[in-house]
Design a protein around this nucleic acid. Structure first.
Length: 909
RNA sequence: GGGCGGUUAGCUCAGUUGGUUAGAGCGCUACGUUGACAUCGUAGAGGUCACAAGUUCGAAUCUUGUACCGCCCACCA
């Protein structure tokens, strides 16, 4: 198999700093000395780069672009490790892989960061003006911009860095304008006055998705509005009493008999001292509060609609800072909304108009960037009409062109699409893509020009124009990334080669912000979904299941983990610790408990490789194939056949697990093979042959190297550094080749060998049983014991040497009943084990031990008898199951008989 | 308020169409420096699978209910 280097790159003489390091070195793997130079080599050899001219099938992943000002946290670490695992897997499987990285300009977030910095310098963006502020942000971004991408390299991310993008790049900005203008031309973008989510701290509108709902313990205030006619009143319930300053009506349900007589009358609004009508509107829920609702069209979405239906005036009582505006009585001017709330309530109370206060828990919107309580506020903004975009995006999902892992996330997607609401895309920020709309300066003309290119004169009258002050929602550029990053709207070769992509890997938080919108944009602008599978992985949380965050101080710094444990340990922990649909729980106060396993595993591999390499000199024989030097089947010992079969089954298990995104299963399968099967058993078993004390050393070497090498390939996507390091040391591949581009191991059905697996597992069982007896009776570690087995078993004869060595047995004999004192046990096939221990044996203890075991078996046998005596079971259960149960019973009975006989021989009471 | 998940060993989690004597890693206990590895080896302790009822020859697995935890959605002011 050839390992083609990209773009003619060749690495002369192997890897700098790695070759020759392995042998004769310390017994501890030192990732820090290796990872950097390995990554550099991979990168320099263009192993990460995608070749658009390649005839191979494509595999494309768009990295969720981190915020340009972000620095790496565990969430990024997890997200990008998952992507890297998939990408490395598919690369080895022969796909032409593009993993495209980029950064997001992150409008609000970045602007906030820079504004905070400026605050320390005692200046604000308003002091320096828009142009200078933009320049200031650019300077900041340029300075810190690539930080997070560089940090990703430390965890081994194999992105195609040559194609890295930034959402404010000229090319992507052009795409944004193109998308805006096209949607505008299709009538899907409009401008209008609606109630939007307003963040009083960021001074901008937010989309519905950006308004984070949180349950808050508030109150429901019952306010009495006296009827203007003089006698009587109506009581309204509200969670925001201060908004009554902007009330322009009271509404009741048209069918509500309690208020029928009041409809059409007016109330005298206390505090604000205005007269407002009582109207009937079907939007009112008669069962909530008093059934009468105060109507504040400027500050509530439902009230706004009621206002439209009844032609009510709109009184905006709030400034952009959420202070009371001059639309309210003078004594309220400038009060913060919460101060005003207290003051309004106090005045109602003083006037005897506060009916009651009830505690009330309800959801309140918070800004997703700064967590300030959002104010619903009437405002003129730009919107995208979403229903026409959602329809085909929903159909694509229903038609199976888009699938989710875990599958139930598809329900969330469909539900959101079905209930889609228009997207408010204008933001009152300075950092972002400015809205490509120009207004004629001449009010008499009033023309609005929407343009792909900058406009300097009115398209109608040729007069001066001014551009819309607002910028677009950050997500308006992100949703185009699957194609804008490839050159759209131009028909570039990259776009042709790499759209649509394959898999999208992200956290569920941005399913609606980003994933769903990308699907809509992909279909709208490219005519096809941007990816076919969405893998939504879990969230990184602490042991109390709280999301890791800077503000909570419960974060773990991935780079610190890399420094202390190595990138492979970090990756192994994250991958093996998270199943599909579950979160990743880590303890920030105990890194050792989380990451030691990965480090230890890497170290185990390091030492296994040291051992193998000290005993392998040069190329090994092929295990199969036309090569006349190939190992012939009859040359293989039972342990050889066993480890080859285990290796084969690990290939099948791991491959399927990777394919099904069950990465933890893949990690565990390879872990178990390498540690439990290969290191604990096969390497221990094979030592004499490797040392040259026995014939067949060349076969043993071939088996060891081959199975180890296959396992390294299976593990490479998860632990790329250690696997590459060790793989480089193994014989049998071309100079300059990388495991990164080595072919994925293919399942070979001929390697399956159930007979060998069964036989060797009996050997394992016998060794384990003898060891347990040794341990139980505190036989000195160095001392050899004699072992007698009740009956002859060819496997134990052929593997006698192995058994003697691994269990420290002096001699293994068969069928010699004896009455001397010793310890007894029985194998699952009913074969009895006897270990004579002479004076070391405690007869009473041994009797008790056997008694306990017989009792345990007795219970099983009783249950089993009952089960098999049950005609219902025997008749209804599948024959295979019944047979199996019969076999179990026989085995238990045999074992029990054997143990009972042993007890008799010992003279137990 | 609606929808969806989860609850298995001290901790983090596996357990695929019901057939299990319920597993792994970490942690814990005892012993151990055997010619790869003490970041290791060997052996071991530890679970009425949240609770209750049901379906079935058989339930960790299916159904219903309860409790607790979590996620998503929602204009009852």
């Amino acid at each position: 198999m050839s390992h083609t280097l990209r773009r003619g790159a060749t690495i002369e003489g192997g890897l700098p700093g790695i070759a020759g390091k392995l042998l004769g070195t310390a017994s501890h793997y030192a990732p820090g000395e290796i990872e950097g130079s390995l990554y550099h080599w991979w990168s320099a050899a263009h192993f990460f780069a995608a070749d658009r001219t390649s005839p191979r099938p494509r595999y494309v992943i768009m990295m969720p672009p981190p915020n340009v000002t972000a620095s790496l946290h565990m969430g990024h670490g997890l997200n990008n490790t998952v992507q890297d695992v998939l990408v490395r897997f598919e690369r080895m499987r022969g796909k032409e892989v593009l993993w495209l990285p980029g950064t997001d300009h992150a409008g609000i977030a970045t602007q906030n960061v820079v504004e905070r910095l400026m605050l320390q310098e005692h200046t604000t963006r308003h002091d320096i003006g828009r142009a200078k502020f933009e320049a200031r942000v650019w300077a900041h971004v340029r300075e810190t911009g690539a930080t997070i991408l560089d940090q990703l390299k430390a965890i081994g991310a194999s992105c195609d860095w040559s194609r890295t993008y930034f959402t404010l790049d000229p090319q992507l900005s052009r795409a944004v304008r193109e998308a805006f203008v096209r949607l505008y031309e299709r009538g899907l973008i409009y401008r209008g006055n609606y109630i939007i989510n307003w963040c009083p701290r960021c001074h901008t509108a937010l989309s519905n998705e950006e308004a984070e709902k949180r349950d808050v313990d508030g109150s429901l205030w019952y306010l009495r509005y006296p009827l203007a006619s003089g006698s009587g009143h109506v009581v309204v319930a509200t969670t925001r009493p201060e908004t009554m300053l902007g009330d322009t009506a009271v509404a009741v349900h048209p069918d509500d008999a309690r208020f029928a007589a009041m409809i059409g009358k007016t109330v005298r609004l206390p505090v604000a001292d205005r007269e407002v009508p009582i109207v009937a509107d079907a939007g009112v829920d008669p069962s909530f509060g008093t059934g009468a609702v105060k109507v504040t069209p400027a500050h509530d979405p439902l009230d706004f609609e009621i206002g439209l239906r009844h032609n009510l005036p709109v009184v905006d009582i709030l400034t952009p800072e959420a202070r009371i505006s001059d639309a309210a009585p003078a004594r309220f001017h400038g009060l913060d909304r919460f101060e005003a709330r207290a003051r309004v309530v106090a005045e109602f109370d003083a006037a005897g108009l506060l009916e009651k206060i009830e505690p009330h828990r309800h959801a309140v919107g918070h800004c997703y960037r700064c967590h300030t309580v959002i104010e619903p506020r009437l405002s003129e903004q730009w919107f995208v009409k979403m229903a026409p975009l959602a329809k085909p995006a929903l159909e694509a999902y229903r038609a199976g062109r888009l699938s989710f892992i875990p599958a139930r996330r598809g329900d969330d997607y469909a539900q959101w699409m079905e209930n889609i609401r228009d997207w408010c895309i204008s933001r009152q920020l300075w950092w972002g893509h400015r809205i490509p709309v120009w207004y004629c300066a001449d009010p008499a003309c009033g023309t609005m020009t929407v343009s792909r290119t900058d406009v300097t004169a009115c398209s109608a009258c040729g007069g001066d124009v001014r551009q819309d002050e607002d910028v677009l929602d950050t997500w308006f550029s992100s949703w185009l990334v699957p194609f804008s990053s490839l050159g759209w709207p131009d028909k570039t070769p990259d776009l042709d080669a790499f759209y649509p992509g394959s898999t999208l890997v992200t956290a569920p938080e941005i399913l609606f912000f980003w994933v769903a919108r990308m699907v809509m944009a992909g279909i709208e602008f490219m005519g096809d979904v941007p990816f076919s599978t969405v893998y939504l992985h879990g969230t990184v949380r602490d042991t109390q299941h709280r999301k890791m965050s800077k503000s909570l101080g419960n974060g773990i710094d991935p780079l610190e983990v890399v420094e202390h444990y190595g990138a492979d340990a970090l990756r192994f922990t994250m991958i093996s610790g998270m199943a599909v649909g579950t979160d990743l729980i880590l303890d920030p106060d105990d890194l050792e408990s989380s990451f030691a396993a990965g480090r230890n595993f890497a170290n185990k591999l390091w030492n296994a490789a040291r051992f193998i390499l000290t005993n392998v000199d040069g190329p090994t024989r092929p295990l199969a194939g036309p090569d006349p030097a190939a190992v012939r089947p009859e040359e293989l010992t039972l342990p050889d056949r066993w480890i080859i079969a285990r290796c084969q089954s690990t290939v099948v298990t791991a491959t399927e697990a990777y394919e099904r995104f069950r990465l933890n299963d893949a990690a565990n399968a390879v872990y178990r093979f390498l540690w439990s099967d290969l290191a604990d058993w096969y390497l221990e078993q094979v030592k004499p042959r490797l040392y040259g004390d026995e014939p067949g050393g060349d076969v043993a070497r071939a088996v060891v190297v081959k199975t180890f090498e296959v396992a390294l390939r299976l593990l490479h996507p998860i632990m790329p550094f250690i696997t590459e390091t060790l793989w480089q040391q193994l014989p049998g591949h071309a100079a300059g080749a990388s495991i990164m581009r080595a072919p994925w191991p293919l399942p070979d059905p001929r390697a399956a060998d159930p007979e060998a697996e069964r036989a060797f597992s009996l050997v394992q069982e016998l060794v384990g049983a003898i060891r347990a007896i040794r341990s139980e009776y505190h036989v000195e570690p160095g001392r050899q014991v004699h072992v007698r087995l009740a009956w002859r078993n060819p496997v134990f004869e052929s593997e006698g040497e192995t058994i003697r060595r691994l269990a420290k047995v002096a001699d293994l004999r068969f069928g010699e009943p004896t009455e001397e004192p010793g310890a007894h046990d029985v194998l699952s096939d009913g074969n009895g084990i006897f270990v004579p221990l002479g004076d070391a044996i405690d007869i009473a203890r041994e009797c008790a031990r056997l008694g306990t075991e017989i009792e345990r078996l007795g219970k099983l046998i009783t249950t089993q008898h009952r089960k098999l005596a049950n005609t219902q079971f025997v008749e209804r259960a599948p024959a295979l199951v019944v047979d199996n149960e019969r076999r179990k019973l026989t085995a238990w009975e045999e074992q029990s008989t054997v143990l009972a006989e042993k007890r008799r021989l010992l003279g137990c009471a």
